[in-house]
Design a protein around this nucleic acid. Sequence first.
DNA 1: ACGAATCTACCTATTGATAGGTAATATTCG
DNA 2: CGAATATTACCTATCAATAGGTAGATTCGT
Lengths: 184, 184
Amino acid sequence: MNKTREQLEALATDLVQRDGLSSFSFRTLADQVGIKSASVHYHFPAKADLANALIEEYSEHFRGDLEAISQRPDSLRVKLESLIAIFEGVLAENKLCLCGALAAEASSLDETGQRLLRRYFDASVTWIEETLEAHPDQVRTPIPPPQLARVLFSGLEGALLLDRVGEDQEHLAAMRALVHSVTL
Amino acid sequence: MNKTREQLEALATDLVQRDGLSSFSFRTLADQVGIKSASVHYHFPAKADLANALIEEYSEHFRGDLEAISQRPDSLRVKLESLIAIFEGVLAENKLCLCGALAAEASSLDETGQRLLRRYFDASVTWIEETLEAHPDQVRTPIPPPQLARVLFSGLEGALLLDRVGEDQEHLAAMRALVHSVTL
DNA sequence: ACGAATCTACCTATTGATAGGTAATATTCG
DNA sequence: CGAATATTACCTATCAATAGGTAGATTCGT
């Protein structure tokens, strides 16, 4: 049905994750999808609207992935490893987290976009926090869940950033070591 | 003597750390420094050359800060806290790490720029690693220094990214908690 | 027939970059 | 020393390309 809009979003998401929001134009998108740039403006009046749509879609999708992990009857360690696996998958495609990429370019977003970004980070950290609190017996560190959750999520975002310019996946691997040491 | 070039570099560094490399043009720089955009090209033939100069300067400066920390007769914990303080200073100015910001936009760099970025991250991680190894008795975690160093540095880079879009400094604060728990 | 989607055909502003020139400051060498 | 020669640090003027964006006509599915 709304195939064009979906194609545009998919393409734009990919490009943002690879090279950032300012690495492509409406013409880039139009050409690849096979329409004219004016038609892209029909779907997304301005570039900030496009960015906001991408953040919402990405957040929703990520939220779904996290819920899927929650549903499984795994140990805390396995759940956190599944979270890391998501980031490893992104890295395998030579991409960044969409929201991480946009956070570095936050001034190109409007107020709504920045709020959406904040909500994404908040939701992610909160999920980790709740996951930690759901398995209090499997946490093996004096760091309280709220702080540990923040260390884990910013660690993952940073590791993705560093591992992409680096040669191997040292940083995400180190995050695995951290998870291993703080879980039973 | 080379005041113009230095002004251009200082201004460009600031702008990259705030909004990324594509947030400003040679004209932006020229106007603020009071010369013509063509004259900016005299100092930096292309934008990638400017980026490379910025990375080199930033890396050198950061390297100096790290060496200053090494020189001081502090405990491991205090040394790592001094490292965090550097990042807190950057956040206080509403900026990102220059190299972190550029890493999100790595495709606008040339091969040299990407190598310089890699070298910056490598050097930083290596410094942490060596600092940890210099105080083996003060490390209180089973995570080996190489991995711990990577967790710490990607954590700091990520925390900066997240805390800047967020309202407070939750993530850098959490990094402090981590350092507190892994050092004696 | 109607509205959603796309088109043609623009516009204005800006981008990074180049060519060619100029005045002042250094450097080199008879 | 002092004349010849570079070099530094700018300038004006201009380029083709691209940016995001708009107005209004047209096509297409239901």
